[in-house]
């Protein structure tokens, strides 16, 4: 059922809420509409119902007061801007990584990067855009509800790739020439060389060290599942690049434009699934729990 007074009220409210994320506005309006429709069906009078919400100006003020202070402290804002690009050199905290890499409620796909300069991909917005989940389906708890096996599987992916990097270097070590490529031109042709210990060191520092250092931190007691999944997702990209670098290093002077690009694309795709699968499984557990409570 629709009523001109309801539509006029909601239009005025939308105008008052201008400037807030469109998700918040849509959600607020949808909720009021549902409330009005249900109460009106139960026999309440529309004018009286609308009076219960106060004027659109008052209601908008309440919504802003409820939403804005939390947004200012949740860390989703960058430290500042440099030449129009957001920067943030505060040490990355799990919460800040989380609010930027996985925030389905934020419609922006590119959010300020967690550490350094530039932007980061908000996988949460991506899966919403792809229609895989709805923005308000999720909360921080959904990773905590993911099955432990899924979290371990996510963590295993970068670990396996880091291991592969070490194996590739170890197996070909004795047959490697004294100098190996350490830099490649745009076409994938090697154009910089260094002793093989240096070359191997670069590969290990890039593809293996981040995995080891991060795992030491996130496997300690007390790290939440969300922290672990996020770490696994970021490290998937690093370790995929590590594998590609190792292959390129041991292949000597052959030119190979493919591995680095393949690793970059593969790493991002892998990082996405490492994040998405546990999130999805956590969501399913949540829904099942709700159904159990109902039934």
């Amino acid at each position: 059922m629709t009523d001109a007074r309801i539509e006029a009220y909601l239009d005025a409210l939308r105008a008052e809420l201008r400037g807030l994320p469109s998700r918040v506005v849509d959600e607020t309006v949808a909720e009021i509409r549902a409330h009005l429709a249900q109460s009106a069906e139960a026999g309440a009078e529309v004018g009286q119902l609308l009076a219960g919400f106060g004027s659109p100006q008052d209601y908008a003020r309440e919504v802003r007061a409820a939403i804005v202070p939390d947004e200012q402290v949740d860390g989703a804002r960058p430290q500042g801007r440099l030449l129009g690009m957001p920067y943030d050199f505060r040490g990355p905290s799990a919460d800040r990584i989380g609010s930027r890499m996985w925030n389905p409620a934020d419609p922006r796909i590119f959010t300020p990067r967690t550490f350094g300069l530039g932007w980061t991909v908000n996988f949460g917005a991506l899966v919403v855009k792809l229609g895989l989940i709805r923005p308000d389906d999720t909360d921080a708890e959904q990773f905590e509800r993911a099955p432990a096996a899924a979290v371990w599987a996510a963590l295993a992916i970068p670990a396996v790739m880091a291991l592969a990097t070490v194996l590739i270097l170890a197996v070909s070590w004795s047959s490697l020439p004294a100098e190996v490529p350490v830099h490649w031109g745009p076409g994938g042709t090697p154009d910089g060389w260094a002793p093989k210990t240096v070359g191997a060191g670069i590969v290990l520092a890039f593809g293996v060290l981040p995995v080891v250092v991060t795992y030491v931190r996130v496997l300690r007691r007390g790290a939440g599942q969300r922290t672990r999944v996020l770490a696994a997702s970021v490290l998937s990209l690093f370790s995929a690049l590590g594998v590609a670098l190792a292959i390129m290093t041991v292949q000597g002077d052959r030119s190979h434009p493919v591995p680095l690009w393949a690793a970059l694309v593969g790493g991002v795709v892998l990082g996405f699934f490492v994040l998405y699968v546990p999130a999805r499984l956590g969501l399913r557990t949540e829904w099942r729990d709700l159904d159990d409570q109902e039934g």
Binding site: I32, H35, Y59, V63, A66, I67
Partner: peptide, 11 residues
């Protein structure tokens, strides 16, 4: 009133 409850719920 409804006008106070929903904003608090979103908070």
């Amino acid at each position: 009133t409804a006008g106070t409850v929903y904003p608090l719920l979103s908070r």
